[in-house]
Simulated assay, not measured.
Amino acid sequence: MTKVLFVKGNPKSTEQSYSLRLGQSFVDVYAAENPGAQVTELDLYESNIPLIDAEVMTAWGKLAQQSELSHHEAAKVLRLGELVDQFLDSDVIVFAAPMWNFGYPPMVKAYMDAIAVAGKTFQYTATGPVGLAVGKKAFITEARGGVWSAGPMVSMEHSQSHLRAFLGFLGVTDVQVLLAEGLNFDPSKGEEILAEAVARAQQAAKAQPVAATV
């Protein structure tokens, strides 16, 4: 059974969000093409995603010294562990997020911080870091108000390029990016642009090998 993790990185509802609609269209078709797939949604704005704050860092220090954690420290560490285990247990990860101010919304970065754990998703070696989350596929569905994949603004794009590099660091190198760009140039054409992106996303979902069922 293929396990699909759908990571939603927009605080808007799906109906109000281009990025979530794009991601949902991919997931729906992928699930239809793979009836045995198990899809789990992780809404980063509705779920408990602990920030790497002073309390978490203190907890990590205590764990290294085998000291007892406070109730709040233990709860945060437990939740971070759950997020890492969920990521590692997934075969396909689908990210849906908009570009905000050249990058992603803050909870996407918070999630990236949560799953980057030495010894679990990557490890340091004598020749440098090595990703441990190998054998997975990732799809990045992203909506943008402007056009950042070509032209003079390319150097200011730090959304999908950052996430792709991050996933590669963790060992996830099979990554496909599906974009809807220029949505704010002419608002009257937003739905048309999204429809074209949705068609590409659905075609990409159909192009995936059908997963074996067990």
Rank of each mutant, 00 (worst) to 15 (best):
P11G: 08
K137W: 07
E181C: 10
A138W: 05
L179I: 06
T14K: 12
T125Y: 05
A75E: 14
K8M: 13
Q176I: 09
G128Y: 06
D89E: 15
E55L: 13
L170N: 07
L78M: 11
V210K: 10
F102M: 14
H71C: 02
S149V: 10
M112I: 14
A64W: 06
L163K: 04
I52D: 04
E82G: 11
L44T: 03
G23Q: 02
D113P: 09
T173L: 05
G36M: 11
M99W: 01
D85H: 03
G182E: 01
L170G: 08
N34V: 13
V147S: 07
T173P: 00
P209D: 08
V4P: 07
L194A: 04
K189H: 08
T14C: 08
M156D: 04
P152E: 11
F139Q: 05
Y18C: 05
H72C: 04
Y30D: 06
E68H: 03
L88E: 11
L69F: 05
G81D: 14
F139E: 06
G23H: 00
V7I: 15
H162E: 10
G128D: 04
M156Y: 10
E73V: 00
T58G: 01
Y124Q: 02
P106Q: 07
D186R: 13
G9R: 01
E73C: 03
R164I: 08
Y111M: 09
Q24S: 15
K120V: 12
A204F: 03
Q16D: 15
F95Q: 07
E142F: 01
M99L: 14
S47R: 02
G168K: 07
Y45E: 01
A204Q: 11
A199P: 07
E68R: 05
M1R: 12
M112C: 14
N10L: 06
G182Q: 04
T213S: 12
V7P: 03
E82N: 14
L22Q: 04
P105A: 11
K12D: 13
M153L: 15
K8R: 15
S47E: 15
L63S: 00
V39N: 07
E192D: 14
V154A: 08
E68D: 13
F102C: 10
I115L: 10
F102N: 08
L63V: 06
F6P: 06
A207I: 04
V108K: 04
Q160T: 15
N101P: 00
S67A: 15
S19E: 00
S161D: 10
S155V: 12
V198P: 00
A138K: 07
Y111W: 15
A150R: 15
I140L: 15
K136D: 02
S67K: 15
G151H: 11
H71N: 08
K3Q: 13
